[in-house]
Amino acid sequence: MTAMDINELIAGLESDFKEITSLLEKCERQRLRDVLTQEQKKIEKELAQKRQQKLQQAKKDSGDKTDTTLKGYTVKINNYGWDQSDKFVKIYITLKGVHTIPAENVEANFTERGFNVLVKDLDGKSHQMTVNNLLYPIIVAESSKKIKTDMVLIMCKKKSTKKWDCLTQVEKQSKEKDKPNLDANADPSEGLMSVLKKIYTDGDDEMKRTIKKAWVESQEKKAKADDFGF
């Protein structure tokens, strides 16, 4: 697969992720939210795989012969915090002694909706943090990393000065999940129905049963006999 093919796949997946996230924000029925959330996770997983594939392809195409073997094992970075200014979202990753290793051992790659940080050979192991679903898009070319004492600072350049309530879309959805359903009998948007039909068509038997059950229950509540096309 060429770099162009991978870029097209990533662009398509990012568009799908953005659309399904938008629909999740509008959807109020819990069962339908669960179906959409499941599909969103599948897209997010595939998107992460394609981005990793793109990085590997870029290294191969550049003819980079440096030693890319990670020493020891790799652990997930969990110790971090974040804040923001009008121009940047700043992620503070705490790693004791990170300033003592060669600067080239600290890698940071950015996409419009995410970043990947890899710190190699620190205390006999590598450390990695991957975020694929930032709340809003960032400017890749103007985003960067800085190495400070016992810390890696990730600077994500905002595309707008809009204030971020959360770091990622998943965090936002988690907060909104507990909001009360103000109108349980409201009809879903036409766009939501279109997505559900596509998920139903492409889904396995279990997915189809879940969607059927959610639809039947919603119709019973509304006391209507509309046919969803199943």
Rank of each mutant, 00 (worst) to 15 (best):
residue 122 L to N: 01
residue 152 V to G: 10
residue 63 G to S: 14
residue 116 N to M: 05
residue 173 Q to C: 05
residue 105 N to T: 07
residue 188 P to S: 10
residue 150 D to F: 02
residue 41 K to L: 13
residue 126 S to D: 12
residue 80 Y to K: 12
residue 122 L to F: 06
residue 51 R to T: 00
residue 181 N to L: 15
residue 111 T to A: 09
residue 210 T to I: 14
residue 42 K to F: 04
residue 78 N to M: 11
residue 210 T to V: 11
residue 58 A to H: 02
residue 151 M to L: 14
residue 147 I to D: 04
residue 214 A to W: 11
residue 211 I to D: 03
residue 152 V to F: 09
residue 162 K to N: 04
residue 194 S to W: 08
residue 160 S to H: 02
residue 73 Y to S: 10
residue 49 Q to G: 00
residue 43 I to P: 01
residue 115 F to G: 00
residue 74 T to H: 07
residue 110 F to C: 06
residue 77 I to H: 07
residue 104 E to F: 11
residue 229 G to T: 11
residue 127 H to R: 07
residue 223 A to R: 13
residue 164 W to E: 09
residue 144 S to K: 14
residue 202 D to I: 02
residue 213 K to D: 15
residue 8 E to F: 13
residue 123 D to H: 15
residue 72 G to D: 12
residue 118 L to G: 04
residue 105 N to K: 07
residue 55 L to T: 04
residue 229 G to I: 14
residue 216 V to W: 09
residue 69 T to P: 08
residue 62 S to D: 08
residue 8 E to Q: 15
residue 56 Q to Y: 01
residue 148 K to H: 08
residue 152 V to Y: 05
residue 65 K to C: 06
residue 61 D to G: 02
residue 201 T to G: 01
residue 37 T to G: 12
residue 31 R to E: 10
residue 215 W to R: 11
residue 44 E to S: 10
residue 107 E to A: 09
residue 12 G to H: 01
residue 47 L to I: 02
residue 159 K to A: 07
residue 2 T to V: 04
residue 56 Q to H: 05
residue 169 Q to D: 02
residue 197 K to Q: 02
residue 180 P to R: 09
residue 195 V to Q: 02
residue 180 P to S: 08
residue 90 K to A: 12
residue 106 V to H: 03
residue 38 Q to A: 15
residue 189 S to C: 06
residue 92 Y to C: 09
residue 55 L to H: 04
residue 210 T to G: 03
residue 191 G to E: 14
residue 160 S to T: 11
residue 94 T to R: 15
residue 137 P to A: 03
residue 187 D to I: 12
residue 206 E to M: 09
residue 214 A to H: 09
residue 146 K to V: 10
residue 178 D to Y: 14
residue 155 M to H: 15
residue 90 K to Q: 12
residue 78 N to K: 15
residue 14 E to H: 08
residue 19 E to S: 06
residue 223 A to N: 14
residue 46 E to L: 05
residue 151 M to I: 03
residue 188 P to A: 13
residue 39 E to S: 03
residue 55 L to W: 05
residue 195 V to K: 06
residue 30 Q to C: 11
residue 95 L to M: 07
residue 230 F to Q: 05
residue 103 A to E: 06
residue 10 I to Q: 05
residue 33 R to Y: 09
residue 136 Y to W: 13
residue 100 T to E: 05
residue 4 M to D: 10
residue 140 V to H: 01
residue 160 S to P: 05
residue 166 C to F: 14
residue 83 D to W: 03
residue 26 K to C: 05
residue 128 Q to T: 13
residue 138 I to H: 08
residue 81 G to P: 00
residue 173 Q to D: 07
residue 67 D to Y: 13
residue 32 L to I: 10
residue 63 G to V: 07
residue 87 K to S: 15
